[in-house]
Each structure stands twice: as structure tokens, then as C-alpha cells.
Design a binder for these strands. Structure first.
Lengths: 326, 326
DNA sequence: CTGAAAGCGCTTACAG
DNA sequence: CTGAAAGCGCTTACAG
């Protein structure tokens, strides 16, 4: 059924070891035999069995990527960029979708069973036993766009707090006096940090503000804004913890004929493609996905090369993208 | 990982084969020895090595999923549903992103190297050699939401032609006389079939129509509509080959203050979440993702159980979702 | 540079 | 029910 190295060897008239050498780089093979082997392999449609290889080298070229919020276009974009970057390096992506807030045990066991070379966790939370399992097996782990206080990991994100501060300063300069922050899920580091930076500046200026708890979803932004409107006083600006909520804010405002940016202003976070669509034209904070991905890949590859388990918090700076909602 | 079946066998005072039997299941082992073995395994922290296992059984629990258009929310949704369904069955997803229109050679080789149990191809096209490779290796293949004329595969999609017909009839009943179809990439089966059903009915009613070639992207819908407007005569309806293009159509119309549905109507295709957002409120054709996924999984599992290579075109019917753009 | 052979950790006929 | 042994398809010392 499957074509193996022996078949190729027979056709090429060499030993199976030589076939192996051709496909496992680094070994010295005559150009002539290499060509013979490659021709035979081509003819038979041979591809080395990665499992047999992994059995010996105890390594795989698979990176586990754990993701939850696939409805926010930010994350598919992240997935795509990781897939492309790792493909360049010969690595594949084992995609794990977690429905729950916390990564499930079976997700981890899938990653462990297949001995992934590394794990990237995006918008899912992780508990202690997860990290133990990975550490025990010396599997490098990166938290992408998330941090945890309790444990030490390597995390890559943007400078959320500084961004929150800049956004506050920007809105104040625009003449805003009372503002609303619409949070993501309350236990996510990104939402907390953006809020902290934002409110720090408002406090320093002794300006009133209010937080509404939401959940990073369009519906969340929409419903929350309806609630704000129903309470009677429209703030001079809304800062939503991500773009997709900001869209919900804008649509709710539009429904109530509240003019943006004249009557109130809206700022999002992420700068996903849609922020540039004419219907939204959203002022937002750009998360530098490419740079964040590059940084993650760099760490991953160095830890795969030689595992150190080193931790750290890398913050890639983003920038304010000014459009028509402010 | 250091601990293998031999270590467990030694500690339990049995043979390595017996340890294997305990963990592989289905084999007959005395309750007494089973307990001994499990105790020893527990003590040592043993987990069977999946690579060694796969090497013999020639099976993996990995499904390859090939995807291109991650910018259309339809596809992340599809990815998520597949990930969840296959997780239930103990399968993981090897995610392959293809940038180009055609699947790249290295993508295939990644799937073959890891001996995936099956392959699902969504919105990427595939050439002959790809299919040969999978057939040679008896790897079941499903085209999800795509078909090809040339070769025979198992494909799962919705009944695009019938949907196109229904949409035409619906718009005619609404009083539309001249209509525009905005196509996706011209060589995709979905766009071609939707168009054919749509135009068939218009021709039968001897109504004028026009096709504009686009690319399934928001920008494509937007720019195309700008072009239509600049040509001077606004059709009585636009049918866009997918929702995301329809959003572009709506935004372009809004920019030119052309009232929908009064001055012209717009219909999309897919019924992605966003179609329900208040800013669009798009009349569209619902693609029954869950049913399509279920059907794909069913075929996949039966082919994994026993490979037959059987082909077929399964069409899961969808339905018109009427909202505010018609 | 190349081949013969050992072995990675497992499953699975084949005996007993 | 259980053990000894033959492989699965590869990598990698070890010779030549």
C-alpha cells in the first residue's frame, strides 16, 4: 500500500540507508546517486514516513495551536500567519479548538500524544496541570496575546497598558470628558491591561469614567451600548476592548441616530481588516500581528533547537490608526 | 519520554506484549494481570507512544484540513465545526493554509508525511497529481463546498444551482426586472453553479441580466458596485456570490445614497453571522454548515473504517433567509 | 560515499 | 491467557 524507502531503494538500485540519507539532509551522498534516488522517489510518489522518523529522532515538525474565539477575525488572521510562517520552516499546525474558557484535558493529551514540538496558546486560559505536563516533556510553550499572573511563561503580546494610556490621551486631546470602557471577558489580561492604562490617565486628569463588562463579541458591544443609551446619558467617547465590539457599539449608535464622531466617539482595538470598511471606518489601535508572530516563531525555534524553558513577557508596540469615528 | 512498555513490563513482572495488550484494548487479559500492569504504568507515568503505534497500525488520528480564504468568516466557522466534531471522535486537525489558488506541493507532502487519516479540502483548488497521491495512499478525500468537473471525488456542498434558481424566482416575485450577478473567482464551482441557476430562470422569463466578475472578497463587491454605479443604470437587484461581497455591495450603495431595498435589492449567499448584524441585515441563502460538516465526517469515518474510494456529490439543501435588503 | 545491521516502541500473528 | 518473536519504516553508528 504505502510506498516506503525500500521500494525506492530497489527501483534506484541502492540500499535503503542511502535513500534515507537523501531524504534526511546533512548526510553526504554523491550527486549522481541523489538524482537516481530522487527520480525513483518521484516515480513512486514516495514521502518519508514521519512517524518512523519521529520514533527515532523523538522530534516532530508539528506545532500545536490552541484557539477559542474564531469568531473574532483577529484570530483566523493569527492562525493564517502562523501557518504560513511555520510552513516556511517545514512545520505543520495541529489546530485545537477549545470551546470552554479553559483548555480541556483531552486537548492537552492530543498535543502530548503526538509529541508536538511546541505549543502556542492564543485566547484560551490554561491551568496549572497543563503547564506541568508541557514542562515535564520539555515542550516549549508561548502565550500569544495573553498573560497570566500566577505562572511564568513566555508570552508575546502588544503593550496593552501603554496603548490604553495613549488612547485616553488622544481622546482627551479631542475634547472628550466622560468616557466608557467596554471590557472583554473580565479575566483576560488584554482587557484588564487596556482598561488599566486607559483609566490611569483619566484618573490623573480627574475625568469621570465608567466600565461596562462585556465579552469581546459583536453582540456584547451592541447590547452594552443599548444599555448605556437606555441609561440616558451618552458619554463623549466609547473605548471598546476590541474592534468587533466597537462595531457593535457603532451599529447601536447608528440605530439610535447618534452621530459619530459628532455626538460621541468610538475607538476599538486590533485593527482587523473590517475596521477599514467604509461602513465602520473605525479609529483603533493596531496590533502588529506579523511582528508578534515573528517573535513567537523565533522563540519557538530557539527552544526547539535547545530547550531552556526560559520565560519572559515580550511586548511589541502597536500604533493608533486614526479614522472617522473620532 | 523515557518510560516505555518494557519498563512497565519489568516492574509488573509480565511480558512487554502483555503491557501492550492492556493498553491497546480488545485483547483478553486476566483482570489480575491487567491490574498489575496498570499499577506499574501508573507508578512510572507511562503513556503509549503514538508514533510506534501508528507505525504498525498505519493509522493516525489526524485529519488534514486545507483552507485558503480565512478572511471570509464562513471558513473559520467551518474550521471550528470540523475541529469540534472530530475532537469528539478522538481526531485532531492538521491545519494547512494555502495562499495560492492551487494547493502547493509542500502542503500535500506535509499531509502525506504525517499519514493523515483523511483530507478535507475547502476553498482551494486541486490538480491531478494531488488526487493521485492521495488515492495511491488510500487516503480518503472530501471536497467541502467545492467540486471539480474533471475528476471524481466525494464532494459535500449545498445545492447551489437550485439556490440560484430560487433566488431568481424570489426576486422576480418581488418585482425585480433587470439584475446583476457578482461572481466569485470565475473558476470556482460554487460561483458558477449559483450563477447558472440564477440566469437560467431569468432567461426563461426573458429578463435582462449582467454578470460582473469578482473574487469573493469584500473589496471585490465594493469596487464592482462602484463600477456598476459609475456606468449609470442601477439594476433592480444585485445577487452576490457570497455574503462578504454583498456587504461590499451594500456599503458602496450606502455611500452613493442608493436606498436598499427601495431603489435596489441585494441578496448574498452563506448566511454568515454578520449577515444578521443590524448594519447589514442581509437577505441571503443559508448554507447549512453543521449538516454539511456532519455529512463530511460521516463519509470520512466510514472510509477510514474501510477504504472504498467511492465518489459522489452530496448536496445539502439550504434555505432563503429573508431580511431587510429585499 | 555506501551498505548491512541494530534498534526506536509498539502491535500482532503464532505457539504453548 | 500469555510469551517470544517478527516486523512497521525509518535513522544512525559501524565497517568497508
Amino acid at each position: 500500500m504505502g510506498i516506503n524507502a525500500k521500494d525506492v531503494a530497489r527501483l534506484a538500485g541502492v540500499s535503503q540507508s542511502t535513500v534515507s540519507r537523501v531524504f534526511f539532509g546533512g548526510a553526504s551522498v554523491t550527486e549522481k546517486t541523489r538524482k537516481k534516488v530522487l527520480a525513483a522517489a518521484e516515480e513512486l510518489g514516495y514521502t518519508p514516513n514521519e512517524f518512523a522518523r519521529s520514533l527515532i529522532t523523538n522530534k516532530t515538525n508539528i506545532i500545536g495551536l490552541v484557539m477559542k474565539g474564531v469568531k473574532n477575525p483577529f484570530y483566523p488572521q493569527v492562525l493564517k500567519e502562523f501557518a504560513l510562517e511555520f510552513k516556511k520552516l517545514g512545520y505543520g499546525i495541529l489546530f485545537v479548538h477549545t470551546n470552554n474558557y479553559e483548555i480541556e484535558k483531552e486537548d492537552i493529551s492530543m498535543l502530548l500524544k503526538y509529541n508536538v514540538a511546541g505549543v502556542i496558546i492564543t485566547d484560551a486560559a490554561l491551568s496549572l496541570y497543563v503547564t506541568e505536563d508541557f514542562k515535564k516533556n520539555q515542550i516549549p510553550l508561548v502565550l500569544f496575546n495573553r498573560k497570566t499572573e500566577k505562572q511564568d511563561f513566555y508570552s508575546v503580546g502588544t503593550n496593552n497598558m501603554a496603548a490604553g494610556r495613549k488612547i485616553a490621551e488622544y481622546l482627551i486631546a479631542k475634547g472628550c470628558t466622560d468616557m466608557v470602557y467596554i471590557s472583554g471577558e473580565r479575566n483576560t489580561s488584554t482587557s484588564i491591561e487596556r482598561e488599566k492604562g486607559f483609566f490611569d490617565v483619566l484618573e490623573k486628569h480627574q475625568l469621570p469614567y465608567k466600565r461596562y463588562d462585556s465579552d469581546f463579541s459583536y453582540q456584547g458591544g451592541y447590547e452594552t451600548t443599548k444599555k448605556v443609551i437606555s441609561e440616558g446619558n451618552i458619554p463623549s467617547a466609547f473605548f471598546a476592548a476590541n474592534d468587533i465590539m466597537a462595531f457593535g457599539v457603532l451599529d447601536a449608535l447608528r440605530e439610535h441616530s447618534i452621530a459619530v464622531p459628532e455626538e460621541t466617539k468610538v475607538v476599538g482595538f486590533d485593527n482587523i481588516d473590517m475596521a477599514n470598511w467604509p461602513t465602520y471606518n473605525l479609529t483603533t489601535w493596531e496590533q502588529p500581528i506579523s511582528d508578534m508572530v515573528q517573535e513567537t516563531v523565533k522563540y519557538m525555534m530557539s527552544e526547539i533547537e535547545e530547550y531552556t524553558g526560559r520565560t519572559g513577557k515580550v511586548k511589541i508596540p502597536g500604533q493608533l490608526i486614526e479614522r472617522k469615528t473620532t
